[in-house]
Design a protein around this nucleic acid. Structure first.
Lengths: 225, 225
DNA sequence: GAAGAGTTTGACCAATTGGTCAGGATCACG
DNA sequence: CGTGATCCTGACCAATTGGTCAAACTCTTC
């Protein structure tokens, strides 16, 4: 493999590199390791404290790097945050994308709810990262919301509306249905501290109860009469 | 009215005063005015940026006071935050308290949902203040959650369970029912940026659609078969 | 209107924080 | 093993931030 000479490597090297061309194969082993360590550490810190609450020192410590070394890979705190969000966006929206016109509509939606609930259990940091952003007015991701997200939601809302028109599902507002699914499932990640404070559950056992409850909630509300 | 001499007024005057004895009558007109200006400004800033994201300068500017003057009324940033939370706690929990054993259970719960949705519309800052706290692990209010909130929720969960035992309501997990109501209603305040980004609604018209949707959701899911 | 309580401010401070930089260490490769 | 690219660090910096303080101003009350 040819070793590429990177021009103007002095002050903003890998950052733009990793943004413009996230091609994993073009990275050094060391870059590979450190960049993923940084993004993992940043996920920890940003999701727990929000953008402004997070400090570069915290991220550096969590990634076992010095602060200048951190800034060797990403040119600023903002750059880390941006890279993190754009890396996670696809993962985060994947479940909604799989909502498909094939299959029984009610089952299809309940399956979506269950997938979202699984994600709240498996990827709570990711959920809180976005929650922190949005609750503070979505200053860094407003373009994502206005763009790809709105497009995707419009598309799936149309599908749900079609199901309703065909009487295969109760006639409900599709947008508010989607909002309610986001709210009820992500609640278990975003407000975990409250849920655990009130339930004091053993392990993650309360997720099973939540799954049962949400299945009942959406199945009864969506089954056409 | 006797003018009380406040001992040890030098460094921590009104703060402890206002904490220990929130008796409005004992305050000067100036105190009255400034303290409420500060708390209102603090609500703006804390709810929009979280505890750590908020700065004393922002709060001072929003309250039209100098920073040292701010700190004359509250001895620290923490003190402002604490005073704000404790001032709003009752308001915030009031709707759940009114959930009563009199009346038709399903109506009673739907009425609770509507009240919570109204609060999301009328008091979004308050909602976001608590959301910011909890999403970051509830560091400043964990004692409230573990204490009064848990007690209240346990009490209302018992009521809902009783209704279910009497077949006046579908048999659902009362805790997860309450969580889902919090999630679906507060979503419109906490994630307002996202909701507006996707719906681009005129004025607050989408709250009516939300009310219709949530009424359907909970009425169908809770009506016993 | 004097006196003392109550209120306000400018100047200041130490700690934190995002970020820079010159140089040194290390690695890959011919 | 030499050389150039890559990686890493200690020292440093300017801006921000929470908080202090002495002094001055203002309001109330006698």
């Amino acid at each position: 493999m040819e070793r590429r000479a990177v021009k103007d490597f002095g002050s903003l090297p890998i950052t733009e590199f990793s943004m413009v061309m996230p091609d994993t194969a073009a990275r050094t082993r060391i870059q590979e390791k450190n960049i993923s360590a940084i993004l993992d550490a940043a996920l920890d810190v940003f999701s727990g404290a929000g953008f402004r609450g997070a400090t570069l020192d915290q991220i550096a410590r969590a990634a076992s790097l010095s602060k200048p070394n951190l800034l060797y890979y990403f040119k600023s705190k903002e750059a880390i945050h941006r890279a993190l969000l754009s890396e996670l966006l696809d993962t985060w929206l994947a479940p909604l994308r799989t909502l498909d016109s094939g299959g029984e509509p009610v089952d299809e939606i309940v399956r979506y709810v269950m997938r979202k609930l699984d994600m709240a259990r498996e990827l709570p940091r990711e959920s809180r990262l976005f929650a922190n952003e949005i609750v503070q007015g979505a200053p860094h991701i407003f373009d994502i919301i206005e763009g790809p997200l709105t497009t995707l939601v419009d598309e799936k809302a149309a599908l749900i509306r079609k199901w309703a028109a065909e009487d295969r599902i109760a006639a409900v507002d599709p947008y508010h249905l989607i909002f309610s699914i986001w709210a009820t499932t992500q609640h278990y990640a975003d407000f975990d501290a409250q849920v655990r404070g009130i339930l004091r559950p053993e392990r993650d056992q309360h997720f099973d109860d939540a799954a049962r409850f949400l299945t009942h909630l959406y199945r009864t509300a969506l089954t056409p009469d």
